[in-house]
């Protein structure tokens, strides 16, 4: 019995500690719906006069906290680079032609319904992604959300067709150049202000009319840079994981 107690003692101690910490944190939280943060009202009151912006989340992400978003973008960049580094072909492995995992089904053609759905969904998802990226400063959305949508469009190609179709669309070097362009684009848009003697990411473009597509200065440019990077990054990720399943095989010992 005492052995069992000793077995559970670390758990009990940890659970007690966690419970006490959570309870203390819960008591210190503001009542639900009664939050009065210092910065939220400042953003809401200043974004229209100073930036002609109407979407506060985009204004915070790409303007008030634009420098933090640069770091966030590079967290994504580094994580994807790490993934691709881990998922490259190892010395003990060899790349084979893509193998159908369900070999017993023979050479089944993709069902016409699936093919039709893919043909229908691909352009619309692509359009929706471009729309969400370009209107990120006006409506809910932006580079991160739109970029994921853009990458999703290419998953339809894989789902309704063959692995080879996706491969043709995501030639690795082209997509990785695109990803690097997106990441560098954010840096360069910020650097533009430096020679003129301003701070990093200082707005140089005209602010435009409220609610117009071309407004809020550099915000749409940053959205496009982030959207390009996120779309390319997710495309590279899915291609890397698919390659692991379909192409890379462990080299058989002779």
């Amino acid at each position: 019995m005492s052995g069992k107690l000793r077995h559970y003692l670390p758990f009990l101690l940890g659970a007690l500690l966690l419970g006490a910490t959570l309870l203390r944190a819960l008591c210190a939280l503001p009542p639900f719906g009664g939050y009065r943060g210092a910065y939220g009202p400042i953003v809401l009151n200043t974004m229209e006069p100073l930036r002609h912006a109407q979407q506060a989340v985009a204004a915070v992400t790409f303007d008030y906290r634009g420098f933090d978003t640069l770091a966030e973008e590079f967290i994504l960049f580094a994580a994807v680079a790490g993934c691709l580094l881990l998922l490259r072909r190892q010395e003990s492995e060899a790349a084979h032609d893509p193998v159908d995992q369900a070999g017993d089904r023979g050479d089944l053609e993709p069902a016409p319904a699936m093919l039709g759905l893919g043909v229908l969904m691909f352009p619309f998802t692509l359009l929706l992604g471009i729309y969400v990226v370009l209107h990120g400063h006006l409506s809910p959305g932006g580079g991160f959300q739109g970029g994921v949508l853009l990458a999703t469009a290419f998953y339809y190609v894989y789902l309704s067709g063959e692995y080879g179709d996706l491969l043709g669309m995501s030639r690795d070097h082209a997509v990785s150049h695109l990803e690097a362009t997106g990441a560098a684009g954010y840096v360069l848009v910020g650097v533009l202000a430096l020679p003129a003697g301003y701070n990093y990411l200082h707005n140089l473009l005209p602010l435009g009319d409220k609610g117009e597509l071309l407004s809020t200065g550099m915000l749409p440019l940053l959205n496009i840079a982030v959207g390009t990077e996120v779309a390319a990054a997710f495309l590279l990720l899915i291609a890397a994981f698919l390659r692991q399943v379909l192409v890379i095989r462990r080299e058989k010992k002779p």
Partner: peptide, 16 residues
């Protein structure tokens, strides 16, 4: 309006 700062933080959270 709800606080936009924590919403932007949530966006960062999801991406990371």
């Amino acid at each position: 309006m709800v606080d936009p700062v924590v919403q932007a933080l949530t966006l960062t959270d999801i991406v990371v």
